[in-house]
Lab assay of single mutants.
Amino acid sequence: TRVETATETAWISLVTALHLVLGLNAVLGLLLLRWQFPAHYRRLRHALW
């Protein structure tokens, strides 16, 4: 059971790390998009709101 718990903890930390990386990538991607295409982003925002 100790090995199972260790594997579980490893999986949880792995999934958490993946989520963090994906979240960071999403934020960075959005920031890059805003920086690269400000006009396009503004138009998109007007369409959404």
Rank of each mutant, 00 (worst) to 15 (best):
T1N: 06
T1Y: 12
T1E: 06
R2I: 12
R2E: 13
R2Y: 12
R2S: 14
R2T: 10
V3P: 03
V3G: 03
V3T: 05
V3F: 04
V3E: 03
V3N: 03
V3Y: 10
E4A: 05
E4P: 04
E4R: 02
E4F: 06
E4G: 03
E4S: 05
E4I: 05
E4H: 12
T5I: 13
T5Q: 01
T5A: 04
T5K: 03
T5Y: 04
T5S: 04
A6D: 08
A6T: 14
A6Q: 09
A6F: 08
A6M: 05
A6K: 12
T7H: 08
T7Q: 10
T7A: 06
T7I: 08
E8H: 14
E8Y: 11
E8M: 10
E8R: 12
E8G: 14
E8F: 13
E8N: 14
E8L: 09
T9L: 10
T9P: 06
T9E: 13
A10L: 13
A10F: 12
A10K: 15
A10N: 15
W11A: 15
W11Q: 13
W11L: 14
W11F: 09
W11S: 14
I12N: 13
I12E: 05
I12Q: 14
I12A: 15
S13E: 12
S13I: 06
S13T: 14
S13H: 15
S13W: 14
L14T: 15
L14G: 15
L14V: 14
L14I: 14
L14F: 13
L14K: 08
L14C: 09
L14W: 15
V15A: 12
V15G: 14
T16N: 07
T16V: 15
T16I: 15
T16L: 15
T16S: 10
A17G: 11
A17D: 00
A17E: 06
A17S: 05
A17V: 12
L18A: 14
L18F: 04
L18Q: 06
L18M: 09
H19S: 15
H19D: 06
H19A: 15
H19I: 15
H19W: 15
H19N: 12
H19L: 15
L20N: 00
L20Q: 03
V21P: 01
V21G: 06
V21Q: 00
V21E: 00
L22S: 02
L22C: 01
L22D: 06
L22I: 09
L22G: 03
G23E: 00
G23M: 10
G23T: 09
G23S: 09
L24C: 08
L24H: 00
L24T: 04
L24I: 08
N25R: 00
N25E: 04
N25C: 15
N25I: 15
N25Q: 15
A26K: 02
A26C: 08
A26V: 09
A26Y: 02
V27E: 01
V27M: 11
V27R: 01
V27C: 07
V27P: 03
V27G: 06
L28M: 09
G29F: 14
G29Y: 03
L30K: 00
L30H: 01
L30Q: 01
L30S: 03
L30N: 01
L30T: 04
L31S: 04
L31I: 09
L31K: 00
L31Y: 05
L32Y: 05
L32M: 09
L32V: 10
L33E: 02
L33A: 04
L33Y: 09
L33M: 09
L33T: 01
L33F: 13
R34W: 04
R34E: 00
W35I: 06
W35A: 07
W35V: 07
W35M: 07
W35F: 06
W35N: 08
Q36A: 05
Q36G: 05
Q36F: 09
Q36C: 13
Q36Y: 12
F37C: 12
F37K: 03
F37N: 02
F37A: 06
F37Q: 02
F37P: 02
P38V: 06
P38K: 04
P38A: 05
A39S: 10
A39I: 09
A39F: 06
A39Y: 07
A39C: 11
H40Q: 10
H40T: 10
H40S: 09
H40I: 12
Y41R: 01
Y41L: 08
Y41I: 07
Y41V: 07
Y41G: 03
R42K: 09
R42A: 12
R42M: 08
R43H: 04
R43D: 03
R43V: 07
R43P: 02
R43N: 10
R43E: 02
R43Q: 08
R43T: 05
L44D: 00
L44P: 01
L44W: 06
L44E: 00
R45K: 13
R45H: 05
R45P: 03
H46A: 12
H46N: 13
H46E: 14
H46Q: 08
H46G: 12
H46Y: 04
H46D: 13
H46W: 04
A47C: 11
A47Q: 06
A47W: 11
L48N: 01
L48D: 01
L48A: 07
L48T: 08
L48Y: 03
L48W: 07
L48V: 10
W49G: 04
W49K: 03
W49H: 07
W49R: 04
W49I: 06
W49Q: 02
